[in-house]
């Protein structure tokens, strides 16, 4: 019975709507970015990032570079040391396991079709 319950414990798995961004990270020798969508929607309505900031509603579709972020575009519109931590904190965003493919991770009750 104990064994059964141990098996029933949640295994490893990302939170629903965690986004992995790894278009350039691996090539540049840094960890992929893990973007927690759920964390950000608590603070901002969709319209802010997917309107004002210009993020396309499709993972990987917006070409974001660190240069642009440092200039205050995309993530850098908030992550500037004023609204949220600044770009010097590389490891807080670049925090994924090396080699993870870009995509959105589903968790509970869906394995999700793979086109995101």
């Amino acid at each position: 019975m104990l064994g059964l319950l141990v098996c029933w414990a949640p295994g490893s798995g990302a939170e629903y709507a965690d986004v992995v961004l790894n278009k350039r990270s691996d090539k540049e020798g840094v960890r992929p970015v893990i973007y927690p969508h759920w964390f950000h929607r608590i603070r901002f309505q969709c319209r802010v990032c997917h309107g004002e900031l210009g993020f396309v509603m499709r993972v990987g579709a917006t070409d974001v570079t660190m240069d642009e972020i440092s200039q205050g575009r995309f993530c850098g519109a908030c992550h500037n040391g004023e609204i949220a931590w600044s770009v010097e904190n590389c490891d807080l965003c670049h925090s994924g396991k090396p080699g993870l493919p870009t995509g959105i991770k589903g968790g509970h009750q869906t394995t999700g079709p793979g086109l995101w």
């Binding site: 490893s12 798995g13 990302a14 939170e15 965690d18 992995v20 960890r31 893990i34 490891d91 807080l92 965003c93 670049h94 925090s95 994924g96 396991k97 090396p98 993870l100 991770k105």
Partner: peptide, 13 residues
Amino acid sequence: ESDGLHDPGSEAV
């Protein structure tokens, strides 16, 4: 730290 995505060695966790 155990979500399979974050590197457990990362400062972020």
